[in-house]
């Protein structure tokens, strides 16, 4: 077996993953906090006001990174769900299920901040625009995955059922992404482009990209924290968890 594949197998082992994640976590939280603070400072203080939307455009710095995350986290969850269904890898089940609440949080922030931005810009808190509606459906998909996972008693069966639902829901991702092109309703088309020129000045763009980076790092920090807790519960009968709990108890008694 080649070394990379070997390492992948090792990573899939819960005790190894638990220890490795524990070592990375403080760094991930620190990087997310620092880059997040820089991005927010850039967005709130350094970036100039928009010529048309004035200061209200500054909501973009929390709205857009969270909207990107709502799609990214869903794709991550579905990819892990796919691996869990096909290869029955326990760690993938854990990662998929740990992503769901974080994705739901990002989607919720996207909807609320979008609503708060819509009032001064469009004159309404909510409208059944294609982008808004498909993003709301995304939130319900996250709720469905979380609900199904907690409704089935056997944790591993629950994870596989919820992973299947997550996979079906992938069909909504292109709808959310292309909704602004397919339906000409209220929400504006994309300004920032991964490939090609962004229609935004560099002084306004860099805080946005910094915050996009910070939210990605935060996602992985929250994901690893949640996965470690889930593994403790899932592997509670195993020797490595006993040793870990005993070591912690021994220190306190």
């Amino acid at each position: 077996m080649n070394p990379l594949l070997l390492w992948f197998h090792k990573l899939g082992s819960p005790p190894y993953f638990y220890r490795l994640a524990g070592r990375f976590l403080p760094w991930l939280y620190a990087i997310a906090l620092i880059t997040g603070a820089i991005g927010l400072y850039g967005g709130l203080v350094v970036a100039p006001a928009d010529y048309q939307q004035h200061d209200s455009f500054r909501i973009i710095y929390v709205h857009v990174p969270c909207a990107w995350m709502s799609l990214f986290v869903y794709a991550f969850m579905a990819a892990n769900g796919f691996v869990a269904l096909v290869w029955r890898i326990k760690l993938s089940e854990v990662l998929a299920m740990a992503s769901a609440p974080i994705g739901a949080a990002f989607t919720f922030i996207t909807l609320v901040t979008g609503s708060v931005w819509g009032k001064p810009t469009w004159g309404t808190w909510w409208t059944w625009d294609a982008r808004l509606t498909s993003e709301l459906v995304l939130l319900f998909l996250y709720f469905g995955v979380i609900g199904l996972y907690s409704a089935i008693e056997d944790t591993r069966q629950a994870a596989r059922a919820a992973a299947f639902l997550a996979l079906v829901g992938v069909v909504n991702l292109p709808i959310v992404h292309y909704s602004v092109n397919w339906w000409n309703t209220l929400h504006q088309a994309q300004t920032v482009s991964l490939m090609g020129q962004s229609k935004m000045d560099a002084s306004m763009l860099w805080p946005l990209l910094t915050l996009a980076f910070a939210t990605h790092v935060y996602f992985f920090a929250s994901l690893l924290t949640r996965s470690r807790v889930a593994l403790l519960g899932l592997e509670s009968g195993k020797e490595w968890v006993r040793a870990l709990v005993n070591a912690r108890t021994g220190g306190r008694q």
Binding site: T113, R226, V229
Partner: peptide, 28 residues
Amino acid sequence: YIWTAYGVFFVVLLADALAPLRQRRRTL
């Protein structure tokens, strides 16, 4: 509008960060 949006961003992500810590205490 701006501070409401930023407030929601912070409060929701803080709740997200604290939830697994509470769960961890309970599991242990």
